[in-house]
Each structure stands twice: as C-alpha cells, then as structure tokens.
C-alpha cells in the first residue's frame, strides 16, 4: 500500500493532519538545532538525535492524551515533543539550566515529564519496557482508561527486559503497546548481525500477542497500526508489538563517525523522508496550501529559536541543588 496514493486515512481531518505535521516539523527542527548547538558547545554530555524517525513518535502519540503514558529511549527528544513536553523546558534541560524540565538534573538522556505522561528518556537500553508494564498495570488497576506505550529500539529487542515485559503484559493482559523503532543499527551494529529474527515483530508470536510490521517512514501507516493496537489495549484485550522500520539521519550519538553505513544508504532514506511525504500528501489532497505549511515551518523555527535564546539566558542551577530530589523525605 502506498500511503501517498491512498484516500484520506480514517480519522485524519485537515486540522489533525496539520497538527501532526507541525509535531513532526517541531521534532526535526528541534533535533537539527540540537545538533548544531551541540557542535557549538552549548549542549554538554551525550546527545542522540531522532531526526528521520518523526513519523513513529507522532503517529503513535497522536492517539494518546495526558492520561496515557509512554516510556522512551536514549533517543527520546521526539517522543517528548510528540507527547507534548514543553519545548523551551526541553532545550533548557539539554543545556543543563535550572529552567529545564528536570531542573538540569537529567539532561538529554533523561528528559521526562510525568504530568504529560512522559516517563522519561532512558539511558539503559531496554530499560523502559517493564516500566510501561507498570504504568499499564496502574491504568488497569485504577481503571483510568489509560494505556502505556513503550518505545524502544531494535537493539533493545535482544535484552531480557524485552522478553520479560512482553510475557508479563500478555499474561496480565495489560493495556500496553510495545513500539520497536527498528532504525537498522544498535549503535554501530547492524540489525541483521545482532538480531536473529528477520522481523522483530515475529517475536510477538512467542508470547501469542499480535505482532505488526509497519513502514516507520509512513505517518499514516504508523497512525493506523498504532490506532488499532491502542484501541485493543483500551478494550482490555492486551498488548501488541509493533515494529516500525525507520531510519535515523544522524549517527548513534553526536560525534559518531558513522563508518558503518554509506552515504548512498542515507540518501535513499532521505528520498523517502517522512515529513516530505506528509507535506506532499497534504498538498496533493488539497488539505493544505504550500503557504500554510511554510507558515507552520516558520512558526516552528521561531518557536525553537526562541527556546534556545531563552535557555541561553536562563540561570544555572545552584550547586546546593545537587542534594535535592533524591528522596521525598529522608
């Protein structure tokens, strides 16, 4: 199925489409700026950029509200934005400023906003899957109607936590969706080396839950598959494993020489850029004009630039704050 030629996807009207487009552009713009400012020395520590994978985060999170939870990965900026985390707060967090969403304690790899249902980017590969089971257990136990979504990479699908979480979610029929973002590489190691399965989604069979493969560069395909899985979860029918085949434009982290893949390969994926495909679809189906979309692009750029300017001017944390937030009380 070719999405660009398909009729309007169920449930996506003009305003929804533009909203999703704007989210994707926010992620792309945010990541490009983060890469640039990392190179400028404004961002300390490790930074892993999500550019290229926007359709997955946005396609999934567009089904979620603040009562729903997600867990994320070290490559978490996209999930945060898609889940509605405050962009100026994220930029300040990347810089380690007191105004960051985590007061500068966590940085890029640990951005979180529990109010928004964002349970944190995660520095541990495979660290988020069991947490999502817990969030789903809460939703089920308290009857909130919420679901939990765990984003993780192809690399994490080899961790014990992946298998343990899928099994647990299956036996307890937890309202959880496992979204594997298979971008082809676990750090520098290609998936065809590190993973025994052709499709990671095949692993769902072992736990007798649905396993779905989607084109992760196709917003509508992701949206549709996620919609089904989330609806199933909300109905109390248990977990689904979605494997979204996607690609990252940057290296594993900023500073990666990326010798393990070729320019050709990268360019092939850029030809299929998820944002451009949405733009093209919107124009072709008369859902938006080029001016409208350009205006969104410009507004987002202003928003992100303003966030960086604000973060640069923001205060550093007080060194005394190092002792805060370890315990609720001690």
């Amino acid at each position: 199925m070719s999405v660009t030629e398909s009729p309007a996807v169920a449930g996506i009207d003009k305003s929804k489409l533009l909203e999703m487009y704007e989210r994707m552009v926010q992620i792309r713009t945010f990541e490009d700026a983060a890469g640039k400012h990392f190179a400028d020395g404004l961002v300390p520590g490790f930074v892993h950029l999500y550019a290229g994978e926007e359709a997955v985060a946005v396609g999934v999170c567009s089904h979620l509200t603040d009562r729903d939870y997600i867990t994320s990965t070290h490559r978490g900026h996209g999930h945060c934005i898609a889940k509605g985390v405050d962009i100026p707060g994220m930029v300040a967090e990347l810089m380690g400023k007191a105004t960051g969403v985590c007061k500068g304690k966590g940085g890029s790899m640990h951005i979180a906003d529990v109010e928004k249902g964002m349970l944190g980017a995660n520095g541990i590969v495979g660290g988020g899957l069991p947490l999502a089971c817990g969030a789903a257990l809460t939703a089920k136990t308290l009857g909130t109607g919420g679901v939990a979504v765990s984003f993780f990479g192809d690399g994490a699908s080899n961790q014990g936590t992946f298998h343990e979480a899928l099994n647990l979610a299956a036996i307890w029929k937890l309202p959880v969706v496992f979204v594997c973002e298979n971008n082809g590489y676990a750090e520098s190691t290609p998936v065809h080396y590190h993973c025994s399965a052709t499709d990671i989604a095949n692993r769902a069979a072992a736990y007798e839950i649905p396993g779905v493969v989607v084109d992760g560069l196709d917003l509508f395909a992701v949206y549709e598959a996620a919609g089904e899985a989330i609806a199933r979860a909300r109905r109390g029918e248990g977990p689904t494993l979605i494997e979204a085949k996607t690609y990252r434009y940057y290296g594993h982290f900023q500073g990666d020489t990326v010798t393990y893949r070729t320019e050709e390969e990268l360019n092939q994926y850029r030809q299929r850029d998820a944002i451009q495909r949405v733009r093209k679809y919107a124009l072709e189906h008369g859902l938006a004009t080029a001016e409208e979309l350009d205006a969104i692009d410009a507004r987002v750029k202003e928003q992100v630039d303003a966030a960086w300017e604000a973060a640069k001017a923001a205060p550093w944390p007080d060194p005394e704050d190092v002792l805060e937030d370890v315990y609720v009380s001690y």
């Binding site: 300390p44 520590g45 940085g107 944390p317 060194p319 190092v322 370890v326």
Partner: peptide, 13 residues
C-alpha cells in the same frame, strides 16, 4: 549521597 547530576555546575559540585 545522590545520583550523578547532568548539569555542569551540579556535576562539578
């Protein structure tokens, strides 16, 4: 007795 903080002034402390 804390985890390691991210922000440079906090890590320095």
């Amino acid at each position: 007795h804390t985890p390691v903080p991210f922000s440079p002034p906090l890590e320095q402390a």
